[in-house]
Amino acid sequence: MNQNFLKAVCAPVAATMFLISGPLQANAAMVPTEQVVTAASQASVAADRARVNAFLDREDVRGEMQRMGVSPAEAKARIAALSDAEVARLSGRMDDAIAGGSFLGAVVGIVVVVAVVLLITDLLGITDVYPIGPVR
């Protein structure tokens, strides 16, 4: 079946199920803290929509993590610790948020010109790739 069609059908259904079963107030219940915090910064209707989007984002981010070699259980545990707002910020920009390549041997494999530029910028205090920074 067409992937886009599936997504188009599934997303609203999932959102509706979330709205019915989730912590949004549909019946008498305690108001959860997350809703209080979210509502403090956004109008109520917008906040509800943001929560639905965040729910969908959670699935997207989790899937993306698994594709990058994180086990399903671990991906779930990582996402669970984030607030809806944090997941929303993360969604769609995993590449920006990734970090921390190798430190040693950093320049191996990069063209010599780049290495020279980085050496100069290091000496100027703009970059800090080599161990010989402008330390005082």
């Binding site: 990058m68 070699g69 994180v70 545990a77 990582r78 990734i98 921390g100």
Partner: peptide, 16 residues
């Protein structure tokens, strides 16, 4: 750590 990216996501540091 995220093996596929050979790096660490900032959000994962916070979550951890």
């Amino acid at each position: 750590f995220t093996p596929g990216k050979e790096g660490t996501l900032r959000n994962d540091v916070v979550a951890a």
